[in-house]
Nucleic acid binder design. Structure first.
Lengths: 378, 378
DNA sequence: CCATGCTGGCCACCTATTGTA
DNA sequence: TTACAATAGGTGGCCAGCATG
């Protein structure tokens, strides 16, 4: 059909209107030196007189890179990944990047590879992979490494740039809270064993118990779902020696509370519970749930920082763009400055437990105390 | 800073290996007729011998369109938008499109315009805007309409392509469930008044009450948050005449249950409650919540269909791509066929309440009966 | 050396034209 | 007419070289 190619003005049109050569327009656009202030102004006003917008495809074609960040994320709507994704998308856009997302339903190596390839085809400037399970993380090692790639929620043992919540510390904090309330030990309903998040939280739980010289009960396996928490509660509720439970996420804690309520076990009277995530509804469960709150914004910020700084050895991404023209005098691209367009200003440095060679950033989560923890009965 | 331009093979390389002209390669790639089967095969094998991948930027430059769909979504992590987004992203990728996402934190006209402009700059093939409030929806009317644009969760009164959950019907179903349980009337905790979703659910609630000849109590305003539900519950719980409440989403229902529990009002013994969304935890609230489940996958599918069909009058998006080469014989681009690459096969037609001139698609939600509804006390 | 202009090649692909068997 | 080859111009922007006040 018609396909009226309604192309916008090009550099040449701008040049004509401004009475300069297209060369000069290009120089203005790319903040090259050697442009007189008057000329620059003239060009700039021609630009917005015409409503000129540089053609991204053309630029990408010649530079070989698009100012887009690729994200590979699991298809689920689990609170953690979703929150991370939302935070990252917003911050990336604020830093002047486009964000391209590929969801993978199956968390296996082939899916990840395909997703990453897709992004590579699009000439992205960098890639973030939310890699919560082993197959996903493993697949990353065999990938052609032509652009910076950072992992989120990935394998803590894997080298390479990664940003994550410090799951182990989170597990310790949760467990400690329970022990300090006077419980002799703490039971744990874990996430799926192949998830790093789950393994980390369980490891923290166990470490804290051992440090306190407590017995380490068997792990109750779960899968993040409220149903799993409910099922776990059905038998934990029958065991008199169970007085404290750390659920690896709030969803399972929700199911647990449900089961305990059904069995007539009071929380926190008979059994104390701590969750993980601080989902919005956790403040209004019955009883309001004491839980661990991870700072997803900080993790997203760390991931973006790592990408821009090129922390995985591939070399960083060039700094801010300047299509707007507001920042006239700003000279060359300074690495690390990701606040290109309309950034919200204060990008506080993320509190990190810095590794040395590898650029791992673990954001320490925080305890939110509510009403589901009390002293043991009796 | 070497910037080793590690460019891959181009059409010319493929042509050389296959012993044909780059013209022929192009023809094969674009499924042009007039290519002998042997030649096509030769080209195809040269393609994967070299690991050739067509350069998207170059194609975009010539055609003026990238095979990417732009999404504008609110920055929140509310269950509805998040679920919609996840579903859409997955389906779009399965249909062979890239997905570019821009989150907007402030749901105002300026933010939407900027987001849409961003996408337009990227030469996207189509745009989806999750437009749950008036300013967002309104801003769309003034936009240059060069590519198909569909609205999700937008203004039902606005013309133009839209896919959405049938909120009104959902509100009616929820209310009817309560009335049929024997309640004399139903109270309603609504979402923010400027949200179309909230307005629709409230309208359905009111319509159903009127249809049944019931008194219409004043609306209790909320904001989707559990806190709002809790606050509402604090006074609804003190009013003896309140025996049935329809909360506009499960989060508020959660807070409501909490408040009622605190006040010693039994659910469903004293008060019955129905929510909306069917969030994962609703099955394990205390008591398990009767709620309305919207089919977000269906809405996402409808949105994608509308985009590809060009339902808003701008003309559809060209059909499947064929980089893979698997579908050799498939001839010209047939409009409406969005199942290009590895689609999950059965794209059931979405059940729609078809409007006539305007392409609105309302997906009817369904009741999920659990334990929070019973007959009125006494 | 500074601020520009001009010319031209290049990026990878699309498409149209002409010619050939 | 069919199935190509060869050639060329166009897409918009980048960059290098060289000339000019």
């Amino acid at each position: 059909m018609g396909e009226r190619t309604r192309r916008g003005p090009s550099m040449f049109d701008v040049a004509r209107v401004a009475g300069v050569s297209h060369q000069t327009v290009s120089r203005v656009l790319n903040a090259h030196p050697n442009v007189r202030e008057v000329t620059r102004t003239r060009v700039l006003s021609a630009i917005d007189e015409l409503g000129y917008r540089p053609n991204r495809a053309a630029r990408t074609l010649v530079t070989g890179r698009d100012r887009v960040l690729g994200v590979v994320a699991p298809g689920s709507t689990l609170f953690g990944p979703v929150s991370l994704l939302a935070a990252f998308e917003e911050q990336a856009v604020n830093a002047g990047f486009g964000v391209s997302v590929v969801r993978i339903r199956d968390l296996d190596g082939a899916s990840v590879r395909e997703a990453v390839d897709r992004h590579l085809d699009g000439q992205v400037s960098g890639i973030v992979v939310i890699a919560p399970v082993a197959p996903v993380a493993a697949a990353l090692d065999e990938l052609p490494r032509t652009v910076p790639l950072v992992t989120v929620d990935g394998d803590p043992a894997r080298p390479g740039a990664m940003a994550t919540v410090d799951q182990v510390e989170g597990g310790r904090v949760a467990t400690r809270r329970l022990l300090e309330a006077g419980h002799r030990t703490v039971w744990h309903i874990s996430g799926p064993p192949d998830w790093f998040d789950a393994a980390g939280r369980a490891a923290g739980w166990e470490a804290e118990l051992r440090a306190a010289g407590c017995e380490v009960p068997p792990v109750v396996p779960g899968d993040w779902s409220p149903d799993a928490g409910y099922r776990a509660g059905q038998f934990l509720g029958r065991m008199p020696e169970v007085t404290a439970v750390f659920a690896a996420n709030d969803a399972m804690a929700t199911g647990l509370l449900h089961a305990l309520h059904e069995r007539g076990r009071a929380v926190p009277g008979d059994i104390s519970v701590v969750g993980f995530d601080d989902v919005p509804s956790s403040a209004h469960l019955i009883p309001p749930l004491t839980t661990i709150r991870p700072d997803f914004e900080a993790v997203a910020r760390a991931a973006l920082d790592l990408l821009v700084a090129g922390a995985d050895g591939v070399g960083g991404i060039n700094g801010a763009d300047n299509t707007g023209g507001a920042n006239g005098t700003g000279g060359a691209n300074n690495t690390g400055g990701a606040n290109g367009t309309g950034g919200t200003g204060d990008t506080d440095p993320v509190p990190v437990a810095s590794g040395e060679a590898v650029a791992h950033r673990g954001v320490v989560p925080v305890l939110v105390d509510r009403d589901s923890v009390g002293p043991p009965p009796g």
